[in-house]
């Protein structure tokens, strides 16, 4: 039971990190209908900027300034990049962000080079806040949890409870009417995209020092954030939260309990010390495939419920 509770706790910590990574992506999708393939690249940009700023003036200014810079870059990208291709439909937007991802990655590598940056968690929070099962949990990990929860709460209130949130939502489905009511729809989209990118930047500032600030970070993180929002339901904030937590907890349980798949094969009379193609299958355990379980789940969800757990429209 202790192991279960411990895994659950670690799963929640990891899940909230995933949620934070995916929050900007789900925001942009739910508000604008744009699937931003460059999301992980904005995350990368945020991490590198945060590293650079923290090298001069420390972590806290970076926490504010880096997301702002990424947000402004995001808004500029929307204004001069995404808006002109908007009229060609969602495929054009998708391809634009797909290309943008490579551009950002290459620019980051041009500026900062191709080796990992020593971006560290701030010394002020680099102490063990508490221990459980012999493992220390730094104050920084709790800080990450708090920020993730705060992002969720702020987004939820912003979208559902504020006037501007309602206008943005309306602008997605009824742009002409919103426009006729005197709102500048393109401008709303520009700031929404910028805000979503700023969230990616914020995740970069907070996650970059834990996950590593290195050239391959966008490539390795890109897929998992898509899995989170597709399982949760494209554009659903609740869905992203539930999916992220679910993935985090499943991952931890699969690794801690490390169940063997052998009993499944034993039913068919396969010996444990079989050789040949079956050899690797018999030795499979849940721990050895834990990080790919979300992708299985993704395929399963797309077959059974294409709109995801909480989605309102199909993928």
């Amino acid at each position: 039971m202790e192991v279960f509770a411990f895994s659950l706790f670690n799963g929640i910590l990891y899940g909230m990190l995933l949620f934070m990574l995916a929050s900007g992506l789900t925001l942009i999708f739910s508000m604008m209908g744009v699937l931003n393939f460059a999301h992980a690249s904005f995350f990368m940009l945020g991490a590198y900027l945060a590293y650079q700023i923290s090298a001069y003036v420390g972590f806290w200014p970076g926490l504010v300034v880096a997301p702002l810079i990424v947000g402004v870059i995001g808004a500029a990208v929307e204004r001069w990049g995404l808006r002109p291709v908007h009229k060609f439909g969602h495929v054009a937007e998708l391809l634009f962000t797909f290309g943008l991802a490579f551009v950002i990655e290459e620019v980051v590598q041009l500026i900062w080079g191709k080796v990992p940056m020593p971006y560290d968690i701030p010394a002020s929070m680099n102490f063990a806040a508490f221990s459980w099962q012999g493992l220390d949990y730094s104050a920084y990990r709790l800080f990450m949890l708090v920020i993730s929860v705060a992002i969720f709460a702020a987004l939820f209130l912003f979208i559902a409870k504020t006037r501007i949130g309602l206008i943005i939502q309306a602008a997605l489905t009824q742009p002409n009417i919103v426009s006729a009511l005197g709102h500048d729809v393109p401008r709303i989209f520009m700031w929404t995209f910028g805000f979503g990118c700023a969230l990616a930047g914020l995740a970069g500032v907070i996650g970059g020092n834990v996950l590593g600030t290195e050239p391959a970070m966008a490539i390795t993180l890109g897929p998992i954030v898509f899995v989170v929002i597709v399982i949760g339901g494209l554009g659903s904030l609740w869905g992203a939260l539930v999916a992220a937590l679910f993935i985090g907890i499943v991952d931890n349980l699969a690794i801690s309990y490390d169940l063997s798949f052998y009993p499944l094969f034993a039913v068919f009379g396969v010996e444990r010390d079989v050789t040949g193609i079956m050899q690797d299958l018999v030795r499979l355990t849940t721990a050895s495939i834990a990080p790919v379980l979300p992708y299985f789940l993704l395929v399963l969800i797309l077959i059974v419920r294409p709109r995801g757990l909480f989605g309102t429209r199909d993928v």
Binding site: Y14, Q133, L221
Partner: peptide, 21 residues
């Protein structure tokens, strides 16, 4: 233990917990 390679593991906490245990 074998892990899924090439940056797929974002969080090593569960592995570290097992090593500790």
């Amino acid at each position: 233990e074998l892990i899924v390679p090439f940056g797929k593991v974002l969080d090593f906490t569960p592995y570290i917990a097992k090593i500790k245990a």
